[in-house]
C-alpha cells in the first residue's frame, strides 16, 4: 500500500518533560490503525505533535504526510494538507455556531466558496446519521454540549471536512454503547480506500464495530509492539503489564 503518513524517530517534549521517545509509525492509504496504551503514555501528545501544537516541542525526527515533509509546518497548513484530529476534549468557543465554524473551515480547507443552502442540507443529513438533535448546528461551538455531543460534533466535522487522514483521540471514551455505535457508524461512512484512520482508544468496544488493520501499543512514548486486532482483545484481558519494557 502506498504510504500516507510516515513518522520517523519522533521525539518530543512538553515544557522540560520528554514524552515521545524515538517513535516510528507508518500508515498507508486505506488502513485503519489503533493505538492503545496506559494513561499518560503519550498518545494525545503524539496527535498534538503531528499537528504542531505550539505547546509541544519536537526534539528529533520527521513527519512525512502524503510525500510532503510537514515536520515544521503550521497547524493550519497541516489541516489544509488533509490531516484531521478529533480532540479528546474539544474546546468550547462562545459566539460561533457549529454551522458557521464548519462553513469557514470547509472554505479554508477546500479553498472554495461553500454555499449556505447546500451545506445546510449536507450537515442536516450527517447530523441525522449521527442522531444529533436537529438545530444543534445553530448552537455555539461545543458550549454546554454533553461529552457525547461533543464527540459526535467532532465526527460531524470529520465528515464535512473529509480529510485524507483522521486521528481520533479517545473519541469513544466516556460514551455509552449506543453513542459508540453512532461514532463507529460515522467512521464507517467516512472510510474509503484513499484515506486512513488512526484511532487512539482505551477500550475494545469501538474496535468490535470497525475493521482494524493494525494495533500498536504505546508505552512511555514509544511504540513497543504492533499486532492485529487480536492484540486488542489480549490487552482487554491482561492489561499492558506484559508489554512494559524491563518488567
Amino acid at each position: 500500500m502506498s504510504s500516507l503518513l510516515e513518522i520517523k524517530n519522533l521525539s518530543a517534549k512538553v515544557k522540560d518533560k520528554q514524552i515521545l521517545d524515538n517513535l516510528n509509525l507508518n500508515i498507508g492509504k486505506g488502513e485503519v490503525h489503533v493505538i492503545m496504551g496506559p494513561n499518560g503514555a503519550g498518545k494525545s501528545t503524539l496527535a498534538n505533535v503531528i499537528f504542531n501544537n505550539p505547546q509541544y516541542t519536537k526534539t528529533s525526527g520527521k513527519v512525512i504526510f502524503n510525500g510532503k515533509d510537514i515536520t515544521n509546518a503550521k497547524t493550519d497548513e497541516i489541516a489544509r494538507d488533509g490531516v484531521f484530529m478529533s480532540f479528546q476534549t474539544p474546546e468550547e468557543v462562545e459566539g460561533i455556531s457549529v454551522f458557521n465554524f464548519i462553513k469557514t473551515a470547509k472554505q479554508k480547507i477546500t479553498g472554495q466558496n461553500v454555499y449556505f443552502a447546500d451545506l445546510r442540507k449536507e450537515i442536516a443529513k450527517n447530523m441525522e446519521e449521527l442522531e444529533m438533535k436537529p438545530g444543534m448546528d445553530n448552537r455555539d461551538l461545543n458550549v454546554g454540549f454533553s461529552g457525547g455531543e461533543k464527540k459526535k460534533n467532532e465526527i460531524l466535522q470529520m465528515l464535512e471536512l473529509n480529510p485524507r487522514l483522521a486521528i481520533l483521540d479517545e473519541t469513544d471514551s466516556g460514551l455509552d454503547v449506543d453513542a459508540i455505535k453512532l461514532v463507529s457508524k460515522g467512521i464507517n461512512l467516512f472510510k474509503n480506500d484513499e484515506n486512513a484512520i488512526l484511532i487512539i482508544t482505551h477500550s475494545t468496544k469501538i474496535l468490535e464495530m470497525l475493521k482494524v488493520d493494525f494495533v500498536h501499543i504505546l508505552i512511555d512514548g514509544k511504540i513497543v509492539y504492533t499486532g492485529n486486532s487480536e492484540l486488542a482483545k489480549e490487552i482487554e484481558e491482561n492489561g499492558y503489564n506484559s508489554f512494559k519494557v524491563g518488567e
Partner: peptide, 30 residues
C-alpha cells in the same frame, strides 16, 4: 485569549489570524 481554542480552530484550517478573529467575533457576538 485561549491558546487551546486557537489551536482547535487552526486544526480546522484557519490561520492564526483568522482563528483569533473568529474567537474575538464570537466573544463580541452577544
Amino acid at each position: 485569549i485561549s491558546e487551546k481554542a486557537i489551536f482547535y480552530l487552526m486544526s480546522r484550517g484557519l490561520s492564526e489570524e483568522d482563528a483569533k478573529a473568529m474567537i474575538v467575533r464570537g466573544f463580541a457576538n452577544p
